[in-house]
Write a protein that binds this DNA or RNA. Structure first.
Lengths: 150, 150
DNA sequence: GCTTAATAGTTGATTTTGTAACTAACAAGA
DNA sequence: TCTTGTTAGTTACAAAATCAACTATTAAGC
Protein backbone atom coordinates (compact mmCIF):
# COMPACT_ATOMS: atom_id res chain seq x y z
CA UNK A 1 0.00 0.00 0.00
CA UNK A 2 1.56 3.30 -1.05
CA UNK A 3 0.82 6.86 -0.19
CA UNK A 4 -1.05 7.36 -3.45
CA UNK A 5 -3.80 5.05 -2.29
CA UNK A 6 -4.90 7.79 0.06
CA UNK A 7 -6.48 11.11 -0.70
CA UNK A 8 -5.14 13.92 1.38
CA UNK A 9 -7.44 16.48 2.97
CA UNK A 10 -4.48 18.64 3.76
CA UNK A 11 -1.45 19.98 1.97
CA UNK A 12 1.08 19.18 4.65
CA UNK A 13 3.33 16.30 3.67
CA UNK A 14 4.78 14.26 6.50
CA UNK A 15 7.21 12.72 4.04
CA UNK A 16 8.83 16.10 3.53
CA UNK A 17 9.11 16.91 7.22
CA UNK A 18 12.78 16.44 8.01
CA UNK A 19 12.54 15.24 11.62
CA UNK A 20 9.99 12.62 10.59
CA UNK A 21 11.96 11.61 7.54
CA UNK A 22 15.19 11.39 9.50
CA UNK A 23 13.59 9.22 12.14
CA UNK A 24 12.04 6.89 9.60
CA UNK A 25 15.33 6.59 7.71
CA UNK A 26 17.22 6.03 10.95
CA UNK A 27 14.85 3.29 12.09
CA UNK A 28 14.82 1.52 8.77
CA UNK A 29 18.55 1.70 8.22
CA UNK A 30 19.35 0.49 11.74
CA UNK A 31 17.14 -2.58 11.65
CA UNK A 32 19.53 -4.97 9.98
CA UNK A 33 22.56 -4.09 12.08
CA UNK A 34 20.40 -4.12 15.21
CA UNK A 35 19.36 -7.68 14.48
CA UNK A 36 23.00 -8.72 14.32
CA UNK A 37 24.20 -7.33 17.63
CA UNK A 38 20.93 -8.20 19.30
CA UNK A 39 20.54 -11.78 18.10
CA UNK A 40 24.21 -12.62 18.27
CA UNK A 41 25.20 -10.98 21.56
CA UNK A 42 21.95 -9.89 23.20
CA UNK A 43 23.17 -6.31 23.10
CA UNK A 44 21.09 -3.16 23.06
CA UNK A 45 21.75 0.00 21.15
CA UNK A 46 23.50 1.80 23.99
CA UNK A 47 25.66 -1.25 24.56
CA UNK A 48 27.05 -1.49 21.06
CA UNK A 49 27.67 2.25 21.09
CA UNK A 50 29.69 1.99 24.28
CA UNK A 51 31.53 -1.04 22.91
CA UNK A 52 32.40 0.83 19.72
CA UNK A 53 33.61 3.88 21.56
CA UNK A 54 36.00 1.76 23.61
CA UNK A 55 37.05 -0.20 20.53
CA UNK A 56 37.84 2.97 18.63
CA UNK A 57 39.33 5.13 21.39
CA UNK A 58 40.85 2.47 23.61
CA UNK A 59 40.23 3.84 27.08
CA UNK A 60 37.51 6.20 28.20
CA UNK A 61 35.51 7.04 31.29
CA UNK A 62 31.74 6.68 31.43
CA UNK A 63 31.37 10.45 31.38
CA UNK A 64 33.53 10.79 28.28
CA UNK A 65 31.49 8.17 26.47
CA UNK A 66 28.30 9.93 27.46
CA UNK A 67 29.52 13.28 26.18
CA UNK A 68 30.79 11.95 22.90
CA UNK A 69 27.79 9.76 22.12
CA UNK A 70 25.19 12.03 23.71
CA UNK A 71 23.99 9.26 25.98
CA UNK A 72 22.67 10.02 29.45
CA UNK A 73 24.89 8.85 32.28
CA UNK A 74 22.31 6.46 33.70
CA UNK A 75 22.11 4.71 30.35
CA UNK A 76 25.88 4.55 30.11
CA UNK A 77 26.11 3.20 33.65
CA UNK A 78 23.69 0.39 32.90
CA UNK A 79 25.27 -0.43 29.57
CA UNK A 80 28.69 -0.61 31.24
CA UNK A 81 27.26 -2.98 33.84
CA UNK A 82 25.94 -5.33 31.20
CA UNK A 83 29.12 -5.25 29.16
CA UNK A 84 31.14 -5.94 32.29
CA UNK A 85 28.86 -8.84 33.25
CA UNK A 86 29.52 -10.35 29.83
CA UNK A 87 33.26 -9.79 30.35
CA UNK A 88 33.44 -7.44 27.36
CA UNK A 89 35.03 -4.62 29.34
CA UNK A 90 36.98 -4.04 32.54
CA UNK A 91 36.90 -1.12 34.95
CA UNK A 92 39.94 0.40 36.62
CA UNK A 93 39.51 2.99 39.34
CA UNK A 94 41.59 6.04 38.54
CA UNK A 95 44.44 6.74 40.97
CA UNK A 96 44.36 10.47 40.37
CA UNK A 97 40.61 10.81 40.93
CA UNK A 98 38.95 7.99 42.76
CA UNK A 99 35.49 8.90 41.51
CA UNK A 100 36.52 8.04 38.00
CA UNK A 101 36.65 4.63 36.32
CA UNK A 102 38.79 4.01 33.28
CA UNK A 103 37.04 1.57 30.98
CA UNK A 104 38.78 -0.71 28.51
CA UNK A 105 37.73 -3.67 26.40
CA UNK A 106 38.84 -7.13 27.44
CA UNK A 107 40.29 -9.42 24.73
CA UNK A 108 36.80 -10.92 24.39
CA UNK A 109 35.24 -7.50 24.08
CA UNK A 110 37.81 -6.51 21.51
CA UNK A 111 37.09 -9.53 19.35
CA UNK A 112 33.35 -8.90 19.56
CA UNK A 113 33.99 -5.30 18.61
CA UNK A 114 36.09 -6.36 15.63
CA UNK A 115 33.42 -8.69 14.38
CA UNK A 116 30.69 -6.09 14.70
CA UNK A 117 32.90 -3.44 13.14
CA UNK A 118 33.34 -5.64 10.08
CA UNK A 119 29.61 -6.15 9.81
CA UNK A 120 29.01 -2.44 10.26
CA UNK A 121 31.43 -1.62 7.47
CA UNK A 122 29.81 -4.10 5.11
CA UNK A 123 26.38 -2.82 5.94
CA UNK A 124 27.41 0.80 5.55
CA UNK A 125 28.83 -0.04 2.13
CA UNK A 126 25.52 -1.64 1.20
CA UNK A 127 23.59 1.47 2.16
CA UNK A 128 26.09 3.74 0.43
CA UNK A 129 25.71 1.68 -2.74
CA UNK A 130 22.12 2.92 -3.04
CA UNK A 131 23.57 6.24 -4.21
CA UNK A 132 26.51 7.66 -6.08
CA UNK A 133 29.75 8.23 -4.19
CA UNK A 134 29.28 11.99 -4.38
CA UNK A 135 25.70 11.83 -3.18
CA UNK A 136 26.70 9.65 -0.25
CA UNK A 137 29.52 11.99 0.70
CA UNK A 138 27.11 14.92 0.67
CA UNK A 139 24.61 12.94 2.74
CA UNK A 140 27.18 12.17 5.42
CA UNK A 141 28.28 15.77 5.54
CA UNK A 142 24.71 17.03 5.88
CA UNK A 143 23.86 14.46 8.55
CA UNK A 144 26.90 15.46 10.58
CA UNK A 145 25.76 19.05 10.49
CA UNK A 146 22.21 18.11 11.45
CA UNK A 147 23.54 15.95 14.26
CA UNK A 148 25.68 18.88 15.36
CA UNK A 149 28.84 16.80 15.29
CA UNK A 150 30.26 18.32 12.23
CA UNK B 1 34.80 18.81 23.46
CA UNK B 2 35.23 17.72 19.87
CA UNK B 3 36.32 14.50 18.28
CA UNK B 4 39.81 15.83 17.70
CA UNK B 5 40.50 15.89 21.42
CA UNK B 6 40.70 12.11 21.28
CA UNK B 7 43.30 9.93 19.69
CA UNK B 8 41.85 6.97 17.88
CA UNK B 9 43.36 3.52 18.25
CA UNK B 10 41.32 2.32 15.35
CA UNK B 11 40.51 3.46 11.86
CA UNK B 12 36.79 2.91 12.01
CA UNK B 13 34.87 6.17 12.19
CA UNK B 14 31.51 6.08 13.91
CA UNK B 15 30.74 9.47 12.42
CA UNK B 16 30.80 7.94 8.96
CA UNK B 17 28.60 4.98 9.84
CA UNK B 18 25.26 5.81 8.28
CA UNK B 19 22.93 4.12 10.78
CA UNK B 20 24.69 5.89 13.64
CA UNK B 21 24.78 9.18 11.81
CA UNK B 22 21.12 8.94 10.86
CA UNK B 23 20.12 8.21 14.44
CA UNK B 24 22.15 11.07 15.82
CA UNK B 25 20.76 13.47 13.23
CA UNK B 26 17.22 12.22 13.86
CA UNK B 27 17.52 12.68 17.62
CA UNK B 28 19.09 16.09 17.38
CA UNK B 29 16.69 17.41 14.76
CA UNK B 30 13.63 16.12 16.61
CA UNK B 31 14.47 17.64 19.97
CA UNK B 32 13.01 21.08 19.43
CA UNK B 33 9.72 19.91 17.94
CA UNK B 34 9.47 17.21 20.59
CA UNK B 35 9.70 19.84 23.30
CA UNK B 36 6.76 21.69 21.77
CA UNK B 37 4.27 18.83 21.53
CA UNK B 38 5.48 17.38 24.79
CA UNK B 39 5.49 20.53 26.93
CA UNK B 40 2.40 22.04 25.37
CA UNK B 41 0.16 18.97 25.08
CA UNK B 42 1.93 16.22 27.00
CA UNK B 43 2.05 14.17 23.81
CA UNK B 44 4.52 11.46 22.93
CA UNK B 45 6.06 10.76 19.56
CA UNK B 46 3.55 8.14 18.52
CA UNK B 47 0.72 10.45 19.54
CA UNK B 48 1.72 13.36 17.34
CA UNK B 49 2.29 10.96 14.48
CA UNK B 50 -1.22 9.57 14.82
CA UNK B 51 -2.63 13.08 15.19
CA UNK B 52 -0.85 14.19 12.03
CA UNK B 53 -2.01 11.20 10.03
CA UNK B 54 -5.60 11.97 10.91
CA UNK B 55 -5.10 15.67 10.27
CA UNK B 56 -3.68 15.00 6.84
CA UNK B 57 -5.85 12.10 5.70
CA UNK B 58 -9.06 12.88 7.54
CA UNK B 59 -10.29 9.40 8.49
CA UNK B 60 -8.27 6.27 9.02
CA UNK B 61 -8.42 3.04 10.98
CA UNK B 62 -5.76 2.13 13.54
CA UNK B 63 -4.41 -0.51 11.19
CA UNK B 64 -4.08 1.95 8.34
CA UNK B 65 -2.18 4.37 10.53
CA UNK B 66 0.11 1.59 11.68
CA UNK B 67 0.88 0.52 8.13
CA UNK B 68 1.53 3.99 6.84
CA UNK B 69 3.64 5.16 9.76
CA UNK B 70 5.25 1.78 10.47
CA UNK B 71 4.03 1.81 14.04
CA UNK B 72 3.15 -1.42 15.83
CA UNK B 73 -0.54 -1.90 16.51
CA UNK B 74 -0.11 -1.93 20.28
CA UNK B 75 1.58 1.46 20.14
CA UNK B 76 -1.16 2.80 17.89
CA UNK B 77 -3.79 1.42 20.23
CA UNK B 78 -2.30 3.18 23.23
CA UNK B 79 -1.76 6.44 21.37
CA UNK B 80 -5.39 6.37 20.19
CA UNK B 81 -6.50 5.84 23.78
CA UNK B 82 -4.58 8.85 25.00
CA UNK B 83 -5.74 11.06 22.16
CA UNK B 84 -9.31 9.99 22.79
CA UNK B 85 -8.99 10.69 26.52
CA UNK B 86 -7.85 14.22 25.65
CA UNK B 87 -10.82 14.54 23.27
CA UNK B 88 -8.51 14.99 20.28
CA UNK B 89 -10.11 12.16 18.29
CA UNK B 90 -13.32 10.17 18.11
CA UNK B 91 -13.92 6.54 17.25
CA UNK B 92 -16.76 5.23 15.13
CA UNK B 93 -17.38 1.52 14.85
CA UNK B 94 -17.62 0.55 11.19
CA UNK B 95 -21.02 -0.76 10.09
CA UNK B 96 -19.58 -2.94 7.37
CA UNK B 97 -17.02 -4.63 9.60
CA UNK B 98 -17.64 -4.38 13.30
CA UNK B 99 -14.02 -5.14 14.20
CA UNK B 100 -12.94 -1.88 12.63
CA UNK B 101 -12.96 1.60 14.11
CA UNK B 102 -12.90 4.70 11.95
CA UNK B 103 -10.89 7.41 13.63
CA UNK B 104 -11.34 11.14 13.06
CA UNK B 105 -10.11 14.27 14.77
CA UNK B 106 -12.53 16.25 16.90
CA UNK B 107 -12.63 20.05 16.41
CA UNK B 108 -10.23 20.32 19.35
CA UNK B 109 -7.91 17.74 17.82
CA UNK B 110 -8.03 19.53 14.51
CA UNK B 111 -7.04 22.84 16.04
CA UNK B 112 -4.18 21.21 17.94
CA UNK B 113 -3.09 19.56 14.72
CA UNK B 114 -3.17 22.88 12.88
CA UNK B 115 -1.08 24.56 15.50
CA UNK B 116 1.51 21.81 15.54
CA UNK B 117 1.53 21.67 11.76
CA UNK B 118 2.43 25.37 11.64
CA UNK B 119 5.23 24.83 14.11
CA UNK B 120 6.46 21.81 12.16
CA UNK B 121 6.54 23.83 8.95
CA UNK B 122 8.48 26.65 10.57
CA UNK B 123 10.90 24.24 12.12
CA UNK B 124 11.40 22.33 8.90
CA UNK B 125 12.16 25.59 7.14
CA UNK B 126 14.74 26.39 9.79
CA UNK B 127 16.46 23.05 9.29
CA UNK B 128 16.30 23.36 5.52
CA UNK B 129 17.91 26.80 5.75
CA UNK B 130 21.11 25.13 6.95
CA UNK B 131 21.67 24.04 3.34
CA UNK B 132 21.02 25.17 -0.19
CA UNK B 133 17.63 24.43 -1.72
CA UNK B 134 19.15 21.86 -4.04
CA UNK B 135 21.05 20.13 -1.26
CA UNK B 136 17.91 19.95 0.88
CA UNK B 137 15.90 18.51 -1.99
CA UNK B 138 18.54 15.83 -2.52
CA UNK B 139 18.60 15.10 1.22
CA UNK B 140 14.84 14.55 1.34
CA UNK B 141 14.97 12.30 -1.68
CA UNK B 142 17.77 10.21 -0.23
CA UNK B 143 16.09 9.94 3.15
CA UNK B 144 12.88 8.74 1.53
CA UNK B 145 14.81 6.01 -0.21
CA UNK B 146 16.62 5.03 2.96
CA UNK B 147 13.33 4.98 4.82
CA UNK B 148 11.89 2.83 2.05
CA UNK B 149 9.00 5.22 1.50
CA UNK B 150 10.23 6.55 -1.79
C1' DG C 1 41.25 23.00 58.10
C1' DC C 2 36.29 23.56 57.35
C1' DT C 3 32.30 24.42 54.89
C1' DT C 4 29.94 24.54 50.49
C1' DA C 5 29.62 23.43 45.84
C1' DA C 6 30.56 20.52 41.97
C1' DT C 7 31.45 16.04 39.64
C1' DA C 8 31.46 10.68 38.70
C1' DG C 9 28.72 7.28 38.90
C1' DT C 10 24.75 4.33 40.89
C1' DT C 11 20.16 3.26 42.37
C1' DG C 12 15.04 3.50 42.78
C1' DA C 13 10.49 4.92 41.32
C1' DT C 14 7.66 5.92 37.37
C1' DT C 15 6.66 5.84 32.59
C1' DT C 16 6.99 3.86 28.15
C1' DT C 17 7.94 0.17 25.07
C1' DG C 18 7.98 -4.64 23.37
C1' DT C 19 6.25 -9.38 23.14
C1' DA C 20 2.81 -12.55 23.50
C1' DA C 21 -1.46 -13.90 24.47
C1' DC C 22 -6.03 -12.68 24.26
C1' DT C 23 -11.22 -11.36 22.59
C1' DA C 24 -14.29 -10.37 19.03
C1' DA C 25 -15.64 -10.39 14.40
C1' DC C 26 -15.37 -12.02 9.78
C1' DA C 27 -14.32 -15.51 5.89
C1' DA C 28 -13.84 -19.78 3.50
C1' DG C 29 -14.34 -24.53 2.83
C1' DA C 30 -16.19 -29.11 3.94
C1' DT D 1 -23.67 -25.22 9.95
C1' DC D 2 -19.39 -26.21 11.80
C1' DT D 3 -14.79 -26.14 11.87
C1' DT D 4 -10.40 -23.65 10.82
C1' DG D 5 -7.99 -19.63 9.78
C1' DT D 6 -7.47 -14.65 9.50
C1' DT D 7 -7.85 -9.88 10.89
C1' DA D 8 -8.80 -5.63 14.16
C1' DG D 9 -7.80 -4.19 18.23
C1' DT D 10 -6.83 -4.69 23.44
C1' DT D 11 -4.56 -6.27 27.53
C1' DA D 12 -0.98 -8.35 30.61
C1' DC D 13 3.54 -8.96 31.76
C1' DA D 14 8.42 -8.23 31.11
C1' DA D 15 12.10 -5.21 29.48
C1' DA D 16 13.89 -0.73 28.96
C1' DA D 17 14.02 4.36 29.22
C1' DT D 18 13.47 8.50 31.99
C1' DC D 19 13.96 11.46 35.94
C1' DA D 20 15.14 12.40 40.47
C1' DA D 21 17.49 11.37 44.38
C1' DC D 22 21.43 9.34 46.28
C1' DT D 23 26.74 8.17 47.72
C1' DA D 24 31.44 9.07 47.33
C1' DT D 25 35.00 11.96 46.11
C1' DT D 26 37.19 16.18 44.74
C1' DA D 27 37.61 21.32 44.33
C1' DA D 28 37.08 26.12 45.93
C1' DG D 29 36.44 29.84 49.04
C1' DC D 30 37.21 31.44 53.30
Amino acid sequence: MTQDDYTKKDDFDLLDFLPYLLNRAAEESSLEFQNVYNDRYGMLRTEWRVLFHLGIYGELTATEIGERAKIHKTKVSRAVNKLEARRFLARARSEADRRVEQLTLTPIGLSVYRELRGIAQQYDAKLAAMFSAEETAVLRKMLRRLADIG
